[in-house]
Amino acid sequence: MKLTRIGGPTVLVELDGWRLLIDPTFDPAGRHYAFGWGTGSTKTADPAIDVDDLGPIDVALVSHDHHADNLDDAGRAMLPSAGAVVTTASGAGRLASAQSAAPVAAERLHGLVPGASVTLAGPRPGLPTLVISATPCRHGPPLTHAIVGDVVGFAVRRQGEEQVALWVTGDTVLFEPLRRTAEELSIDVMLANVGGVRFGVTGPLRFTMTGRDAVELVGIAAPRVATFAHYDGWSHFVDGEDGLRDAIDASAASVHDRAVWLVDGRAVEV
């Protein structure tokens, strides 16, 4: 498996000939995006790869479509060209809508709730069938679902295999259903979204995992490889790259030795 970090949550995954793109974001830096309820963020880094240089995408995995740091305008515009789009059930309705700036054809769109799965046949001869399951996320403190909306992570398996080839946590805080998921899955590669998101209007409340949270989750999941995304490139990260690296450096060998750092714009074999 090769992982190429493009920026924010956006990672290109090359798995057995498949090309999967996680949370497409390709807008240039400098713009401020409103997330609702007085929250928002400014994009501070350009994507490491331009969308026009990306190449064909077999599957786009969109953890949620309603926050621009996970799906921005340029990312939304490229979705109809993907072979398939897997996202939340509510997001699928919005992405298919004629009101969308770039509607995705219904036959290419798969909306999932946590625990549900979709099976995708190999898009080219010789490629394995993949089973993609939605895993639970809570994108903020308790009782904030009405504000933050639906979010999912993704467990990607080769059909017929129990082991999860790739687990993408999605944007989430550390909470019991996430811990249980980490305990229950047999995981080869884990990609955790971190950053410790906070907003001035919400004070100390966090909306994604911190580095310390990620260390705890890696310790529970015990993947062969743990790597990380969505901890820089935006102004709303409070526990960014420094916090993550400090937490990993201070962690036990059972966590520290599993960590692999992705390089912007370069494919890393994991």
Rank of each mutant, 00 (worst) to 15 (best):
L15M: 07
L61K: 01
V168L: 11
D16G: 13
I57R: 03
L120K: 04
V152P: 04
A121Q: 14
V13Y: 05
Y33M: 03
R94Q: 15
M190E: 15
L174Q: 04
A92G: 06
T42G: 09
W261V: 01
A146E: 04
S100V: 10
L217F: 03
P136C: 11
L109H: 06
D58V: 10
R94N: 10
H139A: 14
I147Y: 12
G36R: 05
L174M: 10
G7P: 08
R19D: 06
G55A: 09
V260T: 12
L262Q: 12
P204S: 06
V62I: 14
L143E: 15
A165P: 00
V11C: 01
E184S: 07
A259M: 05
V118D: 00
D246S: 07
T169I: 07
A155C: 13
P114M: 11
D72Y: 03
D16H: 10
S100Y: 00
G203M: 11
P123Q: 06
V260N: 10
T227K: 02
P142C: 07
S81A: 04
H145R: 13
V255F: 06
C137R: 01
E184I: 02
G196F: 01
P103H: 05
F228I: 00
V59A: 09
M190Y: 11
E107Q: 11
T144K: 06
H256C: 02
Q99M: 12
L20D: 01
A82M: 11
Q163M: 14
A96E: 06
A106N: 13
V85W: 04
I220A: 01
L71I: 07
P103K: 05
G170F: 07
G203R: 12
T135H: 07
V86T: 15
D264P: 14
A68K: 09
S117R: 08
L174D: 02
F228D: 03
T10E: 05
S63F: 08
D249P: 05
D16N: 12
V62Q: 07
G75E: 09
T169M: 06
L95Y: 08
P114I: 14
V197L: 14
R19P: 04
R124M: 11
G36C: 12
D264I: 04
T227C: 15
V263Q: 15
T208I: 06
D16A: 14
G122W: 13
D65F: 10
M78G: 08
A96D: 04
G8C: 06
T44L: 14
L127T: 09
E14Y: 00
V260H: 06
A192C: 08
L20T: 03
V131E: 13
R124I: 10
V148T: 15
R19E: 01
A34Y: 15
V152I: 11
A247W: 02
H64C: 05
G93M: 10
A101E: 07
T44Y: 01
M209I: 03
A48H: 09
P56Y: 05
I248R: 04
P56R: 09
V113R: 15
A101C: 00
I147R: 14
D65C: 10
A134N: 02
T88N: 09
P223D: 14
I6M: 04
R108Q: 14
Y33W: 13
P103N: 13
V168T: 08
L166I: 15
I220Q: 01
A214G: 11
D264R: 10
A74G: 08
G93N: 10
D249V: 08
A182E: 05
V215A: 02
V268C: 11
G40A: 13
L54V: 12
R108W: 05
R94Y: 12
W167D: 12
L178Y: 00
D257R: 09
R31V: 09
